[in-house]
Simulated assay, not measured.
Amino acid sequence: MFLTTSVHFLFLVFLGMLSLVLLLIIAVLIYSFYQYRESVQASRWSEVINKRISEVIVYGEEKISADSNFSEASGSPLFRNLFLQKLAESEKKFSGAAQEKLKDLFREYGLQEEALKKLHQKKIHLIAGGIQELTAMNVEDALPKISTFLSHPSAQVYQEAQYAMVHFKGFEGLHFLNSITSKISEWQQLRLLISITHIPENSGDTIKSWMESSNDSVVIFTLKLLRKFQMLSLYSSVIDLLEHPSSEVRIQAVQTLLSLENPSTIAHLMEVYPDQPTEVQKEILRVIKKSKDQCSTDFLKDQLLNTSDSGVKVCAAEALCALEKQDYLAEISQQETTSEELIQIIKYALQEKVC
């Protein structure tokens, strides 16, 4: 009796498990079918949207005949989000009148609401996408809301917010540099630099405060800003950064000093050279190479012959080549007392010069 009951119970358990598996399979199939339908629909809509965008850019909205497929689909939230995404992507590819036509489309179909809704979502990629779209379509009214994302924990979000601030407000949009603690990536620095077209007068104190920031990436970005706009008045502040704790900041300072083209730059760099880390010393030698300052010849010879670091020797040899000192290098390489390492370094430098 007990055995019969156990077998019956196991059979019921088996049926239950089998039913559960079948339900899961059916659910997966339904979900896959739904995803497939969405994918096919999105593909069709993409063709319709791309066609519409192309026609508007080429012919203008007023010269295009009505598209029933486009009109019917334009009421769908999924279609509108895809349309918005395509407009934002297309905006990056065009400029001038073409860009304005895209923004006209954006306004005509009232897509601003779709973009604004994304700012109230919890998913990071949706928030970042919304900021991108509002920025691309120049919806300046959204700036107060976008500014609240400057302190968002996600880099994807706060970087888009930073870019939006600078896109709309130019130099004034950089106010977040006063308090930012996160690192500004190389790519983000480039985006911000491209967006800044001029620096207002009397902004020296603000820029100087950024050069004193505890955030190294803020200092580095500011140095790039100085190079772009040739802010000669801050030359002495750049000099001070040669004592900065970060080697990366010092390297950027060396590059900035060369860019600012002060006649005393090379002499000063040779003076501070002994106190610099090896990587900064190499950068100083590269800067001397670019400057082709003949006053540095003896200094370079000393680095070539008396330093122990191979990388420094290479930089010194290349700089001497730039100063047209090939005969000197050839003479050194032929001396019996010259080490094999130095001979190879000189050969390398001479070959680079030929190339």
Rank of each mutant, 00 (worst) to 15 (best):
I251R: 06
S259C: 08
S233C: 06
L257M: 15
A253V: 03
K224M: 13
S233P: 05
S247K: 04
S247H: 05
Q230A: 09
L223G: 06
M231W: 13
L226H: 05
V238I: 06
S237R: 10
Y235T: 06
P263R: 07
T222C: 07
S247G: 05
V238E: 08
S237N: 14
S236A: 14
D240W: 02
L257K: 09
K224Q: 14
V219Y: 05
S233Y: 01
F229W: 12
L223N: 04
Y235W: 11
S217P: 12
E248S: 04
E243W: 02
E248M: 10
I239K: 09
Q230P: 00
D216S: 14
V254T: 11
Y235S: 10
L241E: 07
K228M: 08
S233R: 10
L234A: 10
S259A: 15
V238C: 08
L225R: 15
K224W: 05
N215S: 10
D240A: 15
V249T: 04
L225D: 14
D216T: 13
R250W: 00
V238L: 11
S214N: 09
Q252I: 00
L241D: 09
L225S: 15
Q255P: 01
L226K: 09
A253I: 08
S264V: 08
H244N: 15
S264Q: 15
F229M: 14
L226M: 02
M231T: 01
Q230I: 05
I251S: 02
L226T: 01
S259G: 03
E243C: 02
S246T: 07
F229I: 15
L260G: 10
I266P: 00
L234M: 11
R250F: 01
V254R: 05
K228G: 13
F221Y: 15
V218G: 12
L260Q: 00
L241S: 09
I251Y: 01
N262G: 01
S246C: 01
T265P: 03
Q252G: 02
Y235C: 04
S233W: 04
V218A: 14
D240H: 11
Q255F: 07
M231V: 14
P245I: 05
Q230D: 07
E243S: 12
S213H: 06
I251Q: 13
